[in-house]
Structures are given as C-alpha cells and as structure tokens.
Design a protein around this nucleic acid. Sequence first.
DNA 1: CCATATGTCTGACAATAGTCAGATATTTCG
DNA 2: CGAAATATCTGACTATTGTCAGACATATGG
Lengths: 289, 289
Amino acid sequence: MDVAPVRSFTRIVAHRIGALQDEYLSLGRSLGASRLLWEIGTAGADVRSLRARLDLDSGYLSRLLRSLEQEGLVVVEPDPRDRRVRTARLTPAGLEALREVDHAGDQAARSLLASLNDAQRRTLVEAMGTVERLLTAGLVRVAIEDPRSPAAQHCLQAYYDELATRFEAGFDPGHTRPATAAELTEPAGLFLVARLTEDPIGCGALKLDGDTAEIKRMWVAPAARGLGVGRRLLHELEQHARDRGVTRLRLETNRALREAINLYRSAGFTEVPAFNAEPYAHHWFEKRL
Amino acid sequence: MDVAPVRSFTRIVAHRIGALQDEYLSLGRSLGASRLLWEIGTAGADVRSLRARLDLDSGYLSRLLRSLEQEGLVVVEPDPRDRRVRTARLTPAGLEALREVDHAGDQAARSLLASLNDAQRRTLVEAMGTVERLLTAGLVRVAIEDPRSPAAQHCLQAYYDELATRFEAGFDPGHTRPATAAELTEPAGLFLVARLTEDPIGCGALKLDGDTAEIKRMWVAPAARGLGVGRRLLHELEQHARDRGVTRLRLETNRALREAINLYRSAGFTEVPAFNAEPYAHHWFEKRL
DNA sequence: CCATATGTCTGACAATAGTCAGATATTTCG
DNA sequence: CGAAATATCTGACTATTGTCAGACATATGG
C-alpha cells in the first residue's frame, strides 16, 4: 500500500487548515472556546455529548464551560430528565458570539477558494466531498452483536419504519416470515451492526441452515448512505457464511428497495424462482459461494 | 459562493488528522519536536529555513533545537559561508529517531486507508491528490515584477535551460529575437512572476506595440505543473493587455512545446502564418481581444 | 572603519492544553 | 433501601506552545 500520497495530503492540508485557524483566534477567544461555542450551537447540548464530540477531559471541559459562563455566553443547567446530566445553552450574547465564529469560519473557507477559477473551485469542492465521504467511511466499524442489544434494536426499529414507508402495501412485522433473536444469534445465525463512532448506522443478519444461509435485515441509515456500508455489511456476512461452511446464500426482497436490489446483483447474486412464501417479497436471489 | 462543503471538509479532515497525531505523540516526543526532526531531514537544514517552513518564533525554535541537541539527536553548527547562519544536522541517533517518526507517519496514513476496499482506496488517493493540487494552486500569487529582479532572472535562466534541452536544435539566447529588460518593463511591456510561498515558479511577459502585443517568456517550473499556473499567467497577461487597449495578441512557439501549444489553442488562440522570422519558431498564434 | 542589518540565542513570561485524583450529586439496580 | 454506576465539578499539577525584549556575533555597504 503506497501511503506517500496520503502523507503528502495530510501534511499540506494540516498546514492550510492550521493557517485558517488564525481566523478564529482573531476573535479574541481560544480555539478551544470557539470550538466549544460551535458545538453547543443554537440548540444547546449536554455536557456529556460535548465531551464525546470534542474528545476532551471532563475536568478541562468543565473549566472551559466555566470561562464561557463567566463571559456571559453560556448557561449550564441540570437536565430535568436526569439531574446528573447538565445542559449548556447559549445566551443571547452567546448566540451573537456564535454568529461571529460562524462568520470567521465562512471567511476561512472562502480564503481556500480565493484565487481559483470557477472550474478549479468546482473540482476542488467535488474532491473535498469525496475525501470527506471516504474518510468517514473509514471510521465505520462492523461487528457481531446481540440482536437484543439497544443498538441492534434501534436499527431494527428504523428498518421496520422504513419498510412501512416504502412498501406500497405498508409493512407489518407480524406478517413477515419471522426471524427471532435466537435465530440471529450464534450458532443459529448472527447479527452485524455497523457503527460510525458509536452511533449505530446499519445492520444485517445471517440465518444459518446447514450449507445454506439466508441474509436478513439489511439496512443502512439514510444519513450514512453512499459510504459503501451496505456493500461492506453484505461482504462481511458472506465472509462469515463462508467461514461456517455455507455454500449457498439466499435472500428475498421487495421491489421498492431498488438500491438493495442493485447491490445484490452487483455483488454476484442472481435472481431465482421464489424459494419461500414471504408475502412482502417480489424478488428472490441466490449466490453460490 | 457556497462554502458549506468546504467547511464540512475542513471540520472532518481536521478531526481525522488531529487523531492521527497521537501516533507521533506515542514516540514520547512533542509534536513540535517531531515536526522539527522531520524538517531537518537527512540532509540537514539551516535554522532560518526551519523557522520559515515551520512558521515558528526564533526563540521558540532555538529552544526546541536545544532540547533535541540535549537528547543527542541534533548538532547545530555555524554555516561556513555565513557564520551568522547556523545549520542543524541529525546525528546517527537523530537519524534513527527520524526513521521512527517516518514510520509513525506511515502508520497514521495507513490507518486512514484501513477498512476501505481497493476501489475506495484508489478513489480516496485520487481525490486527495486533487485537493492537494488545488489547495496548493490557491497559494500561487502572480504579480508584475522587474525582469531584472533575482526571481525573474531565476525563471528566465530556467526557461532558457529548458529550451536548450527540449528544442531539437538546442537553444542559444543570442540567436532568438531579442526582448530586452527595458522592453518587458512598463510602459513598453511587463513581466509577470508566479510565486508559491515566495519561491518563483513561473513567468510570462508582454511586449506592447500599439494595439498589438506579443506574449513572451512563458514558463512554469516542472514541479509546479498541473496547478493551472500557465493558464493563469496567460489569463493575467491577456487581462493586462486588454487594460492597455490591446486588441490583438500574438505569440510564436516551437513544436517541442506541446503543452504550451495546447494551452494557447484552448485559450482561444488560432494559428496564423508566420508574422516574424523567429528562427526557433514553428507555430505562430494570434487572438483577437 | 563604522553604522546598520541580519541571524540566533537567552531570559522572563503567559496562555493554552492536557492529566489525574478525589468530591459531590444523582440515578439505577438488585 | 443501599451499593454501584454515572455525570460533573474542583483542586493541583505538568507540558506545550507562543511572545517579547534584549544580548551577542557576524556580515554588508558606504
């Protein structure tokens, strides 16, 4: 793997981005304080999530919050639902400061595009989008989890909700062919969850039956589409199946799920006659391993 | 100008690159010290250029050097040509430390590519190259300079050397149609120099003659090609000509300069019969403004 | 040779960033 | 209820990064 272009990229981009940060410092606030203001945002945020997003030590964050509080930019109050958690909100002065930070950010971004012509700008913005998308994709982690875990349940619920919206006939989990938690737990099967820095963003399951396995519950969160998560889940399910001696993979799907069907085809699945009586299915696929 | 994608890019990339720097810190040396080791490199570097490249205060840099010196990684000695200048070189232990830093950098770069498939890696590396190229292009500054200035002379010398290498018949500046420094200085003409953070990387000149102007001395440093510097120089020369009431731009060129010929054509120049007796020319171009 | 400019260094600070060990309040769970 | 877990805070540090004013040596241009 040739990493020289990556190193050259990181060096130059770090240098350019470092230069941009002077724009923020010109506001007379430390970089940490500006970032914190920005993360609190107009909606406010609880201290716990700020700590996670900024990756700060709890003591350090607490002190940063105190200094913003003293400037009158922030108020920190206990969350009524869980009074251990405290929520930071911007005061009117804080909102004004946020607008300044935002403006400094716009200026910084603009300065990256200055002295490029239109064609170069378009190319740059497109390439930036690609880099961003793929760097994000590189953070996705896929692991076998218990289908009863909160993350798995979250994915399944979102999956059912989406089917209900997208299927012409709606979707009722009670009418589909069942796949119980036990059937999707080893050794009977397995359940994969894809996460983007802790947040669950997709799932997929395998139900084993001798040398045949069924793929079930393939779903990717709308916000995470285009990162190749679906392909990755499918690929890992296939690998797990192979490892367990499976030679035939099967799945069924509904015609409303166009992108899934395309994925299956491009992953080497071929359409076969219906091999079960799933009421919501229009297409049945199979792949020999 | 929509800067939202740029801001989103800088945010995510800054975050990812920040995370990579832990790799350097794991070497038990501060980020500043690691960067300094890297900039000194195997060839050594004088303190002045280190200060410029790392953009550090002279006092701070001096102290960083002392600490590396104390660790036995670096020796700093006066430059024999100018004993005010001091040159830092790595000791054998320093070279070993540099290898470690380099290895940490490779690891960091690799971790960006990890968990991407081959197609994604190729796409990412290509997009990174585009971003790097265009961010660099955004740093290029073009300005009118005296053709007798050191930067201009450097470009002209490099230009003549390149012609001597590329022309089938070689190149002798004494045999070409002359363009004296006075003819390329306002108001008779003008000389543009393109610089990438101070270093001259290209030039181009205009020789005015009533409503006609000739474009001369177009050159871009090999290391800076692909950044659109040639197109930018040509565009700015054209703009300067227009501002001075020129309605016809002319130039002649040698058939060995393929990329220049393509540039002229795509910029709207059309080939015309020879309008002078330049011995090294094969093509004559003209553009009506 | 002298005035001035240049390059580097030391001393003296100061701000920012980061760490770690408890203290305190609240919630959760057996 | 009481033990354990969770969330945040304060105190007490340390390290890093950055700044500024001079000191000193050397070079340059008249």
